[in-house]
Write a protein that binds this DNA or RNA. Structure first.
Lengths: 221, 221
DNA sequence: TAGATTGTTAATCGATTAACAATC
DNA sequence: TAGATTGTTAATCGATTAACAATC
């Protein structure tokens, strides 16, 4: 299972396929053709088949795709077939919001710790997850084999925390601070940036430019 | 100022230029060449010049770009030169987190109302913004000329709320529910989807596939 | 088997990069 | 003026779409 050179564009679409297939399962749909799926998702059937065939032949000629099977295979591709231990660094509003977000757990991301510098928060819990002080960060990460750290703290502190996390062996950083961490972290550490401001600015751009006639749907993310 | 046919890819990069230019201003940098900027941002100088020239010639041969001026021009392009009134529908953790997020206001997005169905929240305030019950939604939107509605509520209720918002004249929806609203809202209404799960899944993909050697940085968002 | 639909190759389209003449 | 760097055209690269033979 070592696929090489899959383009960003394809990887960006995989989670969306996964979501739509999940909905089909909920609706009790057993099989689907690339054509039907393309109509639902507003992409071309050709693109669906091309995308999937980067990873293998999951369909059957004359039949289409088995929804449950394809859903499961995409889960494997995305690494959702095993649990990822996650901590959240920064237990402010956003950090707590993410900790409360049960959906992630269904997708095999398990929040096992929350960290903050603010002593007022010490000992408090969110959804049964204790808020710890930041000085316990390193020992906690090492002892619990934490794989992913979510950074929900001010830009000014994000880089310092990233450094500390890298040093104690974190494998991936999910970054909500307004900074491109990818530029300053070793390339062995995965960084996924979420720039909410940028998303809002794109909305604003479209608001100013496409007030009347605007292009067909699709996730602008 | 009616530029046509600007590609998605270009628009996606604009907010990032804007952010880097903002940092340069903070650092007291007055002018910058496409070459210097390209080194900082890890994109090609050619791409920067091409991107900007979609909107006009903001530089000067032999000199480069005036940082403040370019920053201001990109603000105009993104529609950040005027205030956008925004409400947040769903005053749970995520809704409150976003309401507390002061940064948006600097970028001209002003949260003027929070809405929820939960009577427990009635009358409470977040950063001076009152939480109102959902039955006041329509009148509030109309009376206050609300432009943007942020949806931070469960998928099951998102579509219904989107419909109500569209009916009372909302211009744009910033959608955090796990649903592609763009497919079911009139094309005159701008929709920007934020799928946090999808971001986390991309992280997970990279975690499984690029543990050792992984491609050069850049915002995978 | 005949019909349907995939997997895959080829054609097209669009986006990125390179090159350079224009010009500050 | 000479040097630097843009704006812009041309060349390259990659991604999307179309077409169709393979096959269930």
């Amino acid at each position: 299972m070592d696929e090489k050179d899959i383009s960003r564009a394809v990887i960006r679409r995989l989670p969306r396929y996964y979501r739509y297939l999940g909905e089909l399962i909920e609706d009790g749909v057993e099989r689907i053709s690339s054509n039907e799926l393309s109509a639902r998702m507003h992409v071309t059937a050709s693109q669906i088949r091309q995308d999937l065939n980067n990873f293998g032949g999951f369909g059957q000629q004359g039949y289409g795709y088995n929804v449950k099977y394809l859903h499961m295979e995409i889960a494997k591709i995305l690494g959702l077939d095993r649990t990822h231990k996650m901590i959240i660094v920064g237990a402010g509003n956003l950090g707590q919001a993410l900790a409360n977000y049960v959906q992630f757990e269904k997708q095999s991301f398990k929040v096992i710790g929350l960290f903050d510098v603010n002593p007022v928060l010490k000992g408090l819990s969110v959804r049964g997850i204790e808020i710890r002080m930041i000085d316990q960060l390193e020992s906690f990460v090492r002892e619990n084999d934490v794989e992913i750290a979510t950074l929900t703290l001010p830009k000014s502190k994000a880089m310092e925390m990233a450094d500390r996390l890298v040093k104690c062996g974190i494998k991936a950083i999910w970054n909500f601070a307004h900074t491109d961490l990818d530029l300053t972290v070793p390339s062995s550490v995965i960084v996924e940036n979420v720039h909410l401001s940028e998303s809002l600015m794109r909305l604003s751009y479209n608001l100013s430019h496409y007030q009347k006639e605007h292009p067909q749907g699709g996730n602008t993310q």
